[in-house]
Amino acid sequence: MTEEDPLELPRGIALAWGVAATPQRGPKREMSVERIVDAAVALADAEGIGAVSMAAVAARLGFTPMSLYRYVSAKDDLLLLMQEEATGIPPESHLEAEGWRGRLVALYQEQVLLYLRHPWMLSLPITGSPITPHSSAWLDASLAALESTPLDAEERLAVALAVTGHARWCGIVQAGYSEQSRTSGMTPEEITMRESALFDRVITADEYPALRAAIDERAFLSEADPFRFGVERMLDGVEAYIDRIDRGEPHVSTDEWVDLDRAELSGDRRVKEAQKSVREAEKALRVARKAERQALREARERIAKAAARD
């Protein structure tokens, strides 16, 4: 490829943008990429992403798998198109919110709802920026919400990604609870009570003092939304940063990434064995410290009993 040649779009992305070649022969009226994707999304919504296969989608449509491959040539492309269809475009209602912060919160809430409607989307791997029309529209909406601020392009993108990350994390947890409720028959409140009781049974103040204190303060039984609290406090920080820029303070560059040594990713057997030895040593240290705490507690009890007798 030369500098003048345009980069060829992968098949799935080309299909999403409507610029891929379509079959010239076959059941054109009965079959289309749109019908295939709609059927796959309906299947995933009803039975989960594990139920989606080219054969299952074909059966749902009343065709053979080979018929599908003439329109969508790989399952990875189908998954990308399913994600694109389920994502849709951001609702215009977010434009009615007040200010950049209100719009971002509205977009956050809508993204969480997307994950609750289509929890299978959370199972799809993240392989890079989703360069598709609908996903691009969501990112564009977040960036547009920040256009009135003094943030530069990199900072606006960072804030948009942070909001998306908060929404995804909330979606993961909320969808998990919804699935547990569906499979167990318990209400969300019953699940919360059960989890609190399990925590109460196994978490001790000696071994997990901060967690034990949170349990005793009934933090896990609170009806407050911890995810909304997190995204609001993150936006507090952005707002304070914007205020500093408005006062003439310089932009802050944060160009350091969390870096992992390439050797850790190499799959080297000796590295993996050494890491396993470290984990085992850390586990043994935790066990030893637990035994020490137990011994100290018992010693204090003996001293107290002896003092009471005296």
Rank of each mutant, 00 (worst) to 15 (best):
T2N: 08
D5S: 07
R11S: 03
V19I: 07
A21Y: 08
P27M: 12
K28E: 09
S32V: 02
V33M: 05
D38S: 10
L43N: 00
D45P: 04
M54H: 11
M54Q: 07
A56Q: 13
A58K: 02
L61A: 06
F63H: 00
T64P: 08
A74S: 13
A74C: 07
P90W: 00
P91W: 13
H94W: 09
E98T: 04
W100Q: 04
R101K: 03
L104P: 02
Y108F: 00
Y108L: 01
P130N: 02
S135Q: 07
L139V: 03
D140F: 11
T149Y: 11
L151S: 00
A153E: 14
L157G: 00
A160E: 01
T164P: 15
R168H: 10
R168I: 14
G171T: 01
E190I: 06
R201K: 15
I203W: 05
Y208A: 09
A213N: 05
I215R: 01
S222C: 04
S222I: 03
A224T: 12
F227H: 02
E239T: 04
Y241W: 12
Y241F: 03
I245Y: 09
D246T: 11
V252N: 04
V258S: 14
D259K: 11
L260Q: 12
E264C: 14
L265C: 13
Q275K: 15
Q275Y: 12
E280H: 13
V287R: 10
A291T: 09
L296C: 05
R300C: 15
A304N: 13
